[in-house]
Design a protein around this nucleic acid. Structure first.
Lengths: 312, 312
DNA sequence: TAAAAATACTCCATAGGTATTTTAT
DNA sequence: ATAAAATACCTATGGAGTATTTTTA
């Protein structure tokens, strides 16, 4: 059976005339006649009682006609539905963000995003990297804003920007007057670290090692669950910490007694990327999102080279 | 768009594997791949996110899939519906009968008909010939049991049986002892007639003319609306009447004081036919009905030649 | 490297067209 | 006689096949 045949039947029922029905279907009368005959043969029942002066639908024809109308209506609805989703910038986009980035980046982005792409329905989730990668592979989310390379097979990434780490310490600290933080300063700092699972924890440790600082010197077992908690601890004088630049745009440095200074350390930064499955079909949506994020950034971070590059 | 493509999509969604989906659809994998690609191009959206290890339906794909399932389900329902109506002896058959035949023939036929064709839904209507012919032409009924030839263009008929007219008169009438009624007897009878519109009225008048009886001699303005009324009048001694043989099988001749005798008159009979539109598609149903009627007849009537003949 | 989907191509079934015939009023 | 559907026959689109390549985990 064919949707086309059903349309022919509907046209004949409406026009009560093969010739006009054929015209309405943009085919010739013999074509429509032959197709309807085939449909009747296939179904094994006569749908139309024809004479040369009158075309009448049989009772079983009426029953089938009713269902045929519903069927083609539903098929048309599929086309409508698809057409309303043709624009890659419309419909749901499930985006994951790591917790050390989301609270600082998303507020900057959401407004312009909504303005530029009002039909994009962003569904956000905030989880640590491993969790986001798993959900990406399981098709539970479509893309993720991460600060580590997408090394899983089948994933790809759009580099967005380099975000430097800053040293955050309490007002009245020994480094109070410094403009920038030298490697030697870092060696002596009593560092507060995030809990396991946060990529920022590993990146901070790596940066410190790079700065020549050995293991130890961190503040005991204090492993904060979030950046906000760490900054509260810093403000309370428990120690220093390295924070990504975007996190330092809030009220911490102005009202809450925390001082933040950039590092003189080449590796003291992270590359933020938009990671996605290579096979994700709405690549255009991700590229538009990436472009908008880069446009919206403050100058405390530096956009990555705009040409997309595989891995890092 | 094509129902086949929707079936392919459904198969892929169920199997999550192009090869197995193709197998389930009894086509090759490249065929299914190509058709789904065409469907995606036609709709303008990606329905399936494919890698060589995993096949996932996109969100819009899921939405479309849901409707696709309903659509093919409905199309299959059309086929089911048609198949359950393939037997011409099932479904509604709208049958008209003239009032001078219906009450006497149908009781004989309905039982065996129901037994032989339990799925045939007979819808009866009892009206005079002209009315039935109009309804036949208007497709309001499918066939009619008439006693006059189907002379309208586009109509055809199956001859069923010859029904002789009998003379009915009250017990104690001058003809009381007669076995058969001669022409001469008819000339003197005081005849009661049916109202206008009944074909029986015209046929009785014609038979009388044929018998050499002139106009007049009927009982005044008594034009009964039905055979039952006429027979009541006969029983009450108002006069005689000509009745079709089948009407004389009830209680009239046994309990109600009416005597009926066959006529010795060659034209004193009518041919009962099953009239229908030539284009009516369930001719087989009508032929089966005709055969069953002829089989069921009492021997007071004589079956017509069984080979169908155009007009009479 | 192996499994799976995509591509390249060939073939043929069938929808579609035009010209004509049949049919029924 | 005329209008309309059916038939005959041809064309061409596109669905389906096999063989092969590409992709990617």
């Amino acid at each position: 059976m064919n949707l086309r045949d059903l349309r022919y039947l509907i046209a004949v029922a409406e026009q009560r005339h093969f010739g006009r029905a054929a015209e309405a279907c943009h085919v010739s009368q013999p074509t429509l006649s032959a197709q309807l005959k085939k449909l009747e043969d296939y179904l094994g029942v006569t749908l139309i009682e024809r004479t040369n002066k009158r075309v009448a639908i049989t009772p079983i024809g009426e029953e089938i006609l009713e269902r045929a109308r519903e069927t083609v209506e539903q098929a048309d609805a599929i086309l409508q539905l698809a057409q309303s989703h043709r624009d890659p910038m419309s419909g749901p986009l499930r985006l994951g963000v790591i917790p050390t980035l989301g609270p600082y980046l998303m507020p900057l982005v959401l407004g312009p995003l909504r303005q530029r792409f009002p039909h994009l329905e962003l569904v956000l989730s905030e989880e640590v990297t491993d969790s986001l990668l798993r959900r990406l592979i399981e098709h539970e989310i479509d893309a993720a804003l991460l600060a580590t390379p997408a090394e899983e097979p089948g994933l790809d990434e759009l580099p967005l920007f380099e975000e430097p780490f800053w040293l955050a310490y309490p007002r009245g600290h020994a480094l109070e007057g410094a403009k920038r933080i030298a490697q030697s300063d870092l060696e002596q700092a009593d560092l507060l670290l995030l809990a396991d699972g946060h990529c920022l924890r590993d990146q901070v440790l790596k940066a410190c090692n790079q700065a020549g600082r050995g293991a130890g010197g961190e503040v005991g077992d204090l492993r904060a669950a979030s950046l906000e908690t760490i900054l509260q601890l810093v403000a309370a004088g428990y120690g220093c910490t390295l924070v990504p630049a975007l996190a330092m745009r809030g009220p911490w440095t102005t009202d809450m007694g925390v001082v933040a200074r950039p590092l003189d350390l080449p590796g003291g930064r992270r590359l933020v990327r938009l990671v996605h499955r290579q096979s994700f079909p709405r690549r255009a949506a991700l590229e538009a999102l990436a472009a908008l994020i880069v446009e919206t950034l403050p100058n405390t971070v530096t956009p990555a080279s705009s040409s997309p590059q595989r891995d890092a």
